[in-house]
């Protein structure tokens, strides 16, 4: 069901820390690239995990190819501001003087929201960039920063448009806002877990996106969903049997039983919060990604989740976690 939505050009992946947002962004970028779209994955500030998960050894402010059809770029607010000022003031020597001046240092340090604004501006630039009369990128995936309020970055262009008087910044902010609000171009994907706090926050963010931000929500991606349930009868039989077997086997049978109870417990919690999510959010697909039991989470797992995203459709578990 993500199908048509994946045709949009700009994908923001947002979510609180600890929900696996970066992993989902990486999986989405790989999926888009695999479908033959020229894809740019963007990481913001000094987060380096997205590029690592996509197999880049490091990122710079210039897009770097990491796989066929897939590039990665790191955007840093301050660097973006300097690039922008470079466009306004195209004299290199003068720029250097300005960048080293105290007032400039103060301005960057003190002006709130400026770096966020410049970051979104740079994202807009990459999204609308043309080469030989057509867009340079078919798809742009942004791993939005988890710091503070998750949609803070998305709010900045709107704030700038409304705050600044007529001028270059205001005109450009208005263009950025227009792009962010266009449902033909943009999709905001909310990554969450099926647990109390993340679901509560997701509902708040969803309301904010639909409300004051007026931005198109693409999907809700529920990460790390547990699926297995074991019958209470089987668990009771195991507990009972543990008393009869030898000491060496007893500990093992008990451990098997405990893990089964743990898994059933999480499956129930996840199911309950998924029900709550589905009752509250009806306008966009809700996609489930399975919990992956691995020693270390690496590129192989990103590929697996990317496959899950491809086959995922709402209302049904992406794939049984039991599949070998």
């Amino acid at each position: 069901m993500l199908g048509a939505m994946l045709d949009r050009r700009l994908h923001f992946v947002v979510g609180k820390g600890g929900v696996g947002k970066t992993t989902v962004a990486a999986a989405l970028a790989r999926l888009l690239a695999r479908r033959g779209r020229r894809t740019l994955a963007i990481e913001v500030d000094d987060a380096r995990r997205l590029s690592a998960l996509l197999g880049a050894s490091g990122t710079t402010g210039t897009p770097t190819v990491v796989a066929p059809g897939l590039s990665v770029v790191a955007i840093e607010g301050r660097a973006a501001l300097e690039e922008y000022l470079g466009l306004i003031i195209p004299v290199k020597r003068l720029l250097a003087t300005i960048f080293s001046s105290r007032i400039y240092q103060y301005f960057v340090a003190a002006a709130p929201g400026l770096k966020e604004l410049m970051t979104v501006g740079k994202i807009w630039y990459e999204t609308t960039r043309q080469e030989r009369g057509r867009p340079l990128w078919d798809a742009v995936v942004v791993d939005a920063p988890a710091t503070g309020h998750s949609v803070q970055y998305l709010r900045m262009p709107q704030a700038a448009r409304d705050t600044f008087g007529a001028g270059l910044v205001q005109r450009e902010a208005a263009k950025v806002v227009e792009l962010l609000r266009d449902p033909r171009t943009t999709a905001v994907h909310l990554v969450t877990l099926a647990e109390e706090m993340p679901v509560a926050e997701t509902l708040e963010t969803h309301a904010e996106l639909v409300g004051s931000l007026a931005m198109p929500v693409g999907s809700v991606i529920v990460n790390r969903v547990h699926h297995r349930r074991f019958s209470p009868a089987a668990l009771a039989a195991l507990r009972e049997a543990a008393r009869r077997v030898g000491a060496e086997e007893r500990a093992l049978v008990r451990a098997v039983c405990e893990r089964a109870a743990e898994e059933s417990g999480w499956s129930e919690i996840n199911a309950a919060y998924l029900t709550r999510l589905r009752a509250a959010i009806r306008d966009v697909p809700i996609v489930e990604l399975p919990f992956l039991f691995v020693e270390e989470f690496d590129r192989g797992e990103v590929d697996r989740l990317s496959g899950e995203l491809e086959t995922a459709s709402p209302g049904r578990a992406a794939v049984s976690a039991l599949r070998p």
């Binding site: 306004i88 003031i89 008087g165 001028g167 270059l168």
Partner: peptide
């Protein structure tokens, strides 16, 4: 710089 910023942002801001 202030003059440039002013042109860019608008004096009111």
């Amino acid at each position: 710089l202030l003059r440039r910023l002013e042109q860019a942002t608008g004096i009111a801001a």
